[in-house]
């Protein structure tokens, strides 16, 4: 697809890394999302104190809201999961919202970024399962009877591959569709502000998709932790 004018790709061209920037714009823009998150975190926690100031207050509201929501689903034993799920939520939210700014490209509109997030989440569920149940976790994949082991094992593997694909394809499809609609409307009637109502819907889609990814990863984690009962 022919990309419109991208600011950071032009910036990399000035340095002399133009061929890399043109081949992988999603990598560069995910670096931009990381830099935004790190800078916001550094500003918010600079003067950390018991009586919070403005920036610290905002960050505390966001983090504690996510923590409450997560503990409500997983129970008290899942409180240590907050760094993982919170990072996934904030990263996907910032990268989705970057698409609304002209001159930036959302990294989640490429299948590689979303598939990496989904792979991390699904592999981490198995690590959690082994950590909570020990070697008995493999028994869940083998079924009740010994001669059914190959069938049940293949079915389970296909089911877990479907989790990865459904997580990554939903996010990728929604953000990519929004980008294509915005580009087409901008080319057709950009002078008359035609993409403006679509952008309002786009903010909604960005929040919903980041939230759905967060929620489904929490549900997979809680399923792996209480698999035994």
């Amino acid at each position: 697809m022919e990309h419109p004018y991208l600011v950071f790709v032009k910036l990399f061209e000035l340095i002399g890394l133009g061929h890399f920037a043109h081949a992988y714009p999603h990598v560069i823009h995910s670096w931009v999302a990381m830099i935004i998150l790190i800078v916001l975190g550094a500003i918010g926690t600079k003067g950390i104190s018991m009586i919070p100031t403005k920036g610290q207050n905002l960050l505390e509201i966001i983090i504690s809201g996510m923590e409450e929501f997560m503990v409500d689903i997983t129970g008290e034993q899942g409180r240590f999961l907050l760094p993982m799920t919170g990072t996934v939520f904030l990263y996907i939210l910032v990268s989705n919202l970057m698409g609304l700014m002209p001159g930036l490209f959302p990294p989640t509109a490429n299948l590689n970024t979303t598939a990496s997030c989904a792979l991390t989440v699904v592999i981490f569920t198995h690590i959690l399962g082994i950590k909570f149940h020990g070697i008995k976790y493999i028994k869940h994949f083998l079924g009740p009877v010994w001669w059914m082991i190959p069938i049940i094992l293949l079915i389970e593997i296909i089911g877990h591959l479907a989790r990865i694909l459904s997580l990554s394809f939903r996010l990728f499809g929604n953000i990519m569709g929004k980008e294509i609609i915005l580009t087409i409307l901008f080319m057709l009637a950009g002078l008359f502000f035609a993409p403006l109502p679509m952008m309002v819907l786009g903010i909604f889609v960005c929040f919903i998709q980041a939230f759905v990814f967060f929620l489904l990863s929490i549900m997979y984690f809680s399923g792996a932790m209480e698999h035994a009962h």
């Binding site: 989790r163 694909l165 459904s166 759905v212 489904l216």
Partner: peptide, 30 residues
């Protein structure tokens, strides 16, 4: 958010992902 709202949001997210995973697992097998 109330507890009831939270539960309905959770159920909506889970069951809306069900159709996608059913369709995708068949195509992974294929």
């Amino acid at each position: 958010m109330k507890r009831e709202t939270k539960r309905s949001i959770r159920e909506l997210a889970y069951y809306s992902s069900l159709g996608l995973s059913v369709a995708l697992s068949i195509f992974i097998g294929l």
